[in-house]
Structure formats: C-alpha cells, structure tokens
Design a protein around this nucleic acid. Sequence first.
RNA 1: GGAGGCAUAGCUCAGCUGGUUAGAGCGCUCGCUUCACAUGCGAGAGGUCGUAGGUUCGAGUCCUACUGUCUCUACCA
Length: 898
Amino acid sequence: MTEKKQLTEPTHEEQPQRGEMASVYNPSQVEQKWYTYWEENDYFHQEVRTEAEAFSIVMPPPNVTGSLHLGHAMDNTLQDILTRFKRMQGLNTLWLPGTDHAGIATQAKVEEQLALEGKSKHDLGRAGFLERVWSWKAQYGGQITRQLRRLGASCDWRYERFTMDEGCSRAVREVFVQLYRKQLIYRGNYIINWCPKCLTTISDIEVEHEEREGQLFYLRYPVKDSEEYITVATTRPETMLGDTAVAVHPQDERYAHLIGKTLILPLIGREIPILADDYVDKDFGTGAVKITPAHDPNDYEMGLRHDLTAITVLDQEARLNENAGVYQGMERYEARRRIIEDLKERGLWLKTEDHRHAVGECYRCSTVIEPRISRQWFVKMKPLAEPAMQVVREGRIEFSPERFSKIYLTWLENIRDWCISRQLWWGHRIPVWYCQDCGAEICAQEDPDRCPSCASARLEQDPDVLDTWFSSGLWPFSTLGWPEKTPELQQFYPTSVLVTGRDIIFFWVARMIFMALEFQKEPPFRKVMIHGLILDSLGRKMSKSLGNGVDPLEVIDQYGADALRFMLVTGNTPGNDVRFHPERLEAARNFANKIWNASRFVILNVQDMEDDGQPSLSAETLPLEDRWILSRFSAACQEITRGLENYDLGEAGRWLYEFIWNEFCDWYIELAKIRLYDKEQPTAKKGAQAVLLKVLEGTLRLLHPFMPFISEEIWSHLPGRRTSLMLESWPREDCRDQTSEKEMAILMEVVKAIRNIRAEMHIAPGKKTDIIVRAADGETQRVLEKGARAITHLAGGATLEVQRELANKPVQAASAVLPLAEIYLPLKGLLDIEKEIARMEKDLAQMRQEEQRLSGKLDNESFIGKAPAEVVAKEKKKMEDVRSRQEALQARLEQLRE
RNA sequence: GGAGGCAUAGCUCAGCUGGUUAGAGCGCUCGCUUCACAUGCGAGAGGUCGUAGGUUCGAGUCCUACUGUCUCUACCA
C-alpha cells in the first residue's frame, strides 16, 4: 500500500508506572497512559499473516468535521470489542480507521469561517478555496480520531485513511471510468432534488420528508371559448406559472367532455391542454391536477408521457425567474401570496383548505427542496441493484438482526437512479472533460492533455464533484489498496463484519454492497451488524435543536471510558435503541469499582505466593468452592464467547457482570478468606491463592474487550512479568463440574436460609449463633458436614451440627425447611413463637400453591401421555419435594403449637 | 398509504429454539463503618407478562385481530 507508513520495529516502551491501588478506582489516572502504551508499542498493528484466519472490520468513517457523539461511541465500542476479542483469539486482525471528507458539511464549515472574514469562496477561487479546506482539515480534522483514542479504540492507525487521500481517490476514478464505459454512469437532463440554500443537487435519500400543516389552494382555470372553468387543487400555487397542462382521470365523468379542450392559464394567458391520465386520483381535491413538468417529479413523468414542454419558473435560489412575468425576482413564498391575491382579484380563487402533507427538506440545512430539471450525472441502478439483492437473499451477506434485510431489500426493489453530481468544490471532481473545440466528452483515469478526437488542448473538466457517498461506497476495498492487488486486499477482503446504525443502511451499506459486487465480484463483508440509536432518557433522539445531546468526552471524564463502553453495549438487545440514563452509567462505574476492589483483594492476598511450585489445580484435591468457581468460570467463558460470536454483546456483558459480582465476589472471595486467614493451614492457603489468581487472570481476559483500560491496569499489577493483556490469548475453558455446582447450590441455599432467619429475627450481625441442620439424605449430610466451615463463616454461625435424624427437635429455635434440609437456630427464650408460626405458615401456603399447580399438571392425563418423559419426571420430582417440605413444615407447626 | 420495532416489578430493560417458583440494575423497606469495595454488605417488599381470541398436554415465549407507542418508507397534487 502506497500510503502506509514505513514499518518500524516496535520499541517496546516500558510499561507505565503502576499506580497505588487505591480503594476507589480512578479511571482518569490510568486510561491515557495505557492507550499511549498500546499505541506506541504498535499493539494495534498486525502484519498480514496469510496462514492465519483473518478478521477485519472497516470503521464507518466519521466526518472529518465531526466530533464524537454517543452514536459513534457505541458503534466503535462494538467494533472494538469484536476486534479485541478476535485478536485475543489469535486471528490476523485488522480494524481499519478513517474519516470521510463529507462534501457539503465540510465545505459549509469552511465557508462559514470565510464569512467571518467577510469573504466568500468565490473570492478565493476554486483552487484557493480547496487549499483552504485542506488546511482546515489538517488543523481540525484530527479531532474525532483523537476522541476515538479516548474511547480505547484499538484500530490500526497505520492504516488510517481519508476518502480523499490519494489511494481512495484513485479508486474513485477507476470506478467512475469503468462504470462510465459500461454506461452504468450517464449524464442527462432530468428532474432532480435541488437545495436552494446549499445550491446543489441532492439524492433522493438525502431528502427528508417532514409532515407539516400546509394549505391546499383551489384555483379556477377558464376553458377557452367557454364560460366553463376547471378547478384544480394545489399546495404550491407559485408553480402555476409553469403549468403546461391540466390532467384529469380518463374515467372521470365530470370532466369527460373537457378532455382535449384548451385552458387559458390565468395570470400568464398561456393556452394549455386538458388531458387524461391514469395517474390522477379522482377523489383527491377536485380530480383535476395542474401539471408543472419543471417543478414536480410526477408532473415531470406525465410531461414525458404526453410530450409536454417544461417551463422552469424558479431559479437556483428558488426565486421566480424571467418566465414568471411580473413575479420575476420574488422569493417563492412571497410569490405564492401574491399569486393567490391576484387570483382572488380576478375571481379565479375558489378556496383554501388546511392540508397536512409531507414536504421534502434538505437533510443538511432543512431548506425545502425544489425539484427542478437539470443536467446531472447518474448511476444506473437496476443492473447494480439486482446482484445486491441476490447476495442478501442467498444469505451470502447476513444482516443481524435479520429483520433489517427486509428493509434493505424493499429499498433496493424500488430503487431509482442515483444522482451523483454535486455543485460543490470539495469532493472528488468528476473525471470527465469536454473538448471546447470539437465537443468531445472524455472520461479518463488520468487527466488528459489533449482531446483524443481533435487533439485540441482546450479541455475543460466537468465542474461538479461526486456525492460523498460515492467514495464511501468503495471504502471496504479502496482502503485496502484497490485497484492494486495488495497483500492487505487479499488477506482482509472481504471484511468480516460491518457494524453500523440502521439509519445508514441505504446511504452506505447498500452502496458498498453493489459497488463491491461490481468491482470485486465478492461481497464487501459477510455480516452486517445493525445497532440502534442512542436516545435520551425520555426516549427522544438526541439532537442539537432539542439540546439533549450528551458529550461522550464529558462522560469519559466523569465516569471513565470503560464505564461508558459497558453502559453502551449492555442492557439491551441487538438492533434496539438504547436510552441514556445516568444511573446506568453509575452502575457501570460501580461495576468497574467492584472489579477494582476484588482485584485489589486478590493481589494483596497473593503477594506472599512463591513463584516456584504453583499448586496443581487439578480435580479432586481441591475443596468444593474451588471446583465450583472453576466450573462457573468455565461456564462464563463459554457463554461470553458464545455471546461474542453471535454478536450478542449485551448477553456477553451480562454474563461478565453476573459472574464477577454474584459468583466470584459474593461467594468465592468470601469463601477463600477462610483459608487465606487461616495461619494453621499454609498449604490450604496456597490452594486458595492459586485459584483466586487463576480465576482473576482469566476473568480479566474475558473482561478486556469490554473494559480494556481497567483490565489492563489490573493486569499490570498481577504478579509475574506481563507485557500487555491485549496481546494475551482468549481463555478456552471446558471444565464444567456439575457435581460441585450441585453441592455448592445446597450450601448456598442453606446459607441464605440462615441469613434470612437472622435478618427476620433481628439477630445482631456480629452475634454468632449455633446452627442445627437435619439433612434429608446421606449425600446432603456429607456435603453439609464438609461445608460446615463455609456455612458458619458465611452465615454467622458459631457451631454447626449436622444430623441425619433429629432425636429431639429443638423447640426454642427459629427454623426453615428447605428441599434437602431443615435448619434450626436455637434461640433460648428469645423466640417469638407467634412470629415463627406465621413464618412457617407463609412457607406452607406457598408450598400448597405450588402443589396445586403441580397436581394440575400431573393429574392431567394428556400431560402424562403427551409431554416428553423427562418433563413428566421432572414435575414428579418437584411434587415429591413439595410434599416432603409440606410434611416437615406441618410437623414443625404442630410442634410449635404444642 | 405501506413496512417494521416496542408493550414484562415504580423506572430502564433481560427472558435464545414453548416446560424455571418470571429475572437484573436503579428506586423502595429493614439491618449493617464485617480487616477488597458504603461506587459497599446482608435480608426483603413489589409483576393477572397491553387487550381479546387461537394452536398446544403446556404460552411471557408461536399464530390472528385489536389498542397504545416509536421509527422508517411512499410521487397523491
């Protein structure tokens, strides 16, 4: 690739200083240093490794003029997560960043700047103006890429591209020329969307339709040589000056006798025909339509059908022109008022009704679009759209969520030719020259010196530039060096996935697909991951006019990039919009802090570990809690990997959260403390340390794609020599242990039940109590005996006595009945019998309800007959449990009542 | 006019291919300065899963209609 920076041997900067591990995590102190470390060590860059599986993403190029908003933040977080994940999995990874020259937006910015100096672009001339834009770009264009760094984006900046850089521009020319030669690009005089403020054409999708309260004016046109009138209804009376016909429906009896007659166009006096056309809706207005081929797309079509002349009455700035008689020079709405007034005077106005209708506006400046006939360049869409639909129908490109493929397909099915010329200076200039001598039209990759027909040197290039989306459409391959066959193109094309918002499917996704199919004969990506929008807390779009936007940089300053990232990609399902709630950001920050403190705990407690013999973590030698957490870690690993592979990052994130907080912190760390603080059993301590460290280490790997900064920071504090977490491998654990999970579940249930009793009985947290448990079976008894220490530790127990049968059940005790155990906390004289009875009865009532539900099923013969045997067995087992608990509860109640 | 999303605890949302006692976070109540963390710990309250039908042994989960809501799309002057 020509523009790639020279490869330099990474210098391997020393890792940043480890900060103190304070008890509150402070993101702003660590994020910057890690990004710098990664970037300076070139960790985002990978050489092409043809032997390795490739994973590549091209970043949707933000506008150079832009600054990061939450939409970018989400979009790029998703891409970063996928990229970091695949990189850790060992794939040959490329995430290619870049920016878009954004024709209208950028030109407008610079023009604004010039205006402050009291100048216009014409004062500088085209070349001078472009120079000015380039220098503006040099000065301000880097803002958004700097902001992406704050987010933690691990894109390969060596490959950073710009839609107007040399390589991309060459691709643009190549594509234009080839399409031109295949006659898929043509020039012609057609009706187009014109923005009277931006003074350029815009494409159909750049017109936004806004429903507005408007008016419908009823105008009377006199029939020539007759006393009759035809009344037409119009929302735009000012265009009547350009009317060249009035149309009615062929089957409309009201007007049948007038078809073929002539009307005198009021105010102008032009004679225009009355004609019949199916397009006319009999039931709308009066059933008669004024036809203005020069200023309405439908009228234009009708004009073609009936061979009408098109009379342009509006100029480029939407003022009435020389064809408008006395109205010449008026602004369009002023003319509208005047025309109505004048018609009123002449008795040719019938009425005006309120009428709600959609008005086309410029997506940039919201000015009402003026359709006009103009000579422009177009891409012929039908032949290109066909294969683009095909690849999606055949599943060679998959949308995720799938429903977006429908949106994509229906759009392409109704596609019209794409107007690509823009009357701007900033952009890719159309590579077509006109010979001033012989009139030849020359389209070429290289600027021609002479006319190939007459050898004249008097060539003038077409003044227009291309729609910005023309170059964006080539992005997946223009950035990889095409038209050259670079190693990058071969390795990384087609790209793996395209991540973007659903608002951009037509503008960009569709165009990339048909361009790629035309020029690469292969889809540009295998998968399109569509995400929703970020809405404010009330569910409204964030917009400048509402002032409800949130600046991601401020969020990062306040909560940290990791918290922002986590908040953006969790708590919703793919494709759905996300509401921005500060509370969710706090939750994400708290999560980061939780991770920080759990890690701090582990790190502080493994400091005295010997480097040499790592205790083996295999199998039976480990106590239950170790086997349990390793199994749970394994489950987390599998689920998080699965979530990431299915592009369901919300699901993966939820697993991370739950595993770390509810399993590792709430249970395992608490249990590990028993051994860590037990000075009598150094060997046991070592085991706990080893497991803590192993699980923490693995968890940091799983966490890293989501929260790269904090995970890297913690990683650097782990014992042993470490380079960077982002270069570590993705954990692949496959050691689920159902037995330990089942056993642990029993212990957890017992602990919770005891805690519940203690809370309800208002036993002071510091007060230890004796615990007596009756196990339902020998197996449970064994588990509880082995877990005695765990139970007393976690549930504030002084002693724990496990019995198979209780010879004399303690009466003065609070109790709970679980499926596999009965629990008694002897409370000598403190027990409130009434309260205890109430608790038991509450439980019993629940059991009875459950029994009813189950018997409803089990008494149903068709359930027994038709449901799968295992489902039936499961329900029967539940019933047994419920019944035995009921019996135990009843026995207990009787005892209490004695 | 078409098309689609959403409707589940006070709020914001999970609930994958139909079988869990329907979950989480925030908020709320009660109790805790327990030696990783009060950005925390423990315990709890809170839901006829929008409405009406249907399929099924079984529906928050599938089908139909309706209601509400948001969005995209369309050349009805």
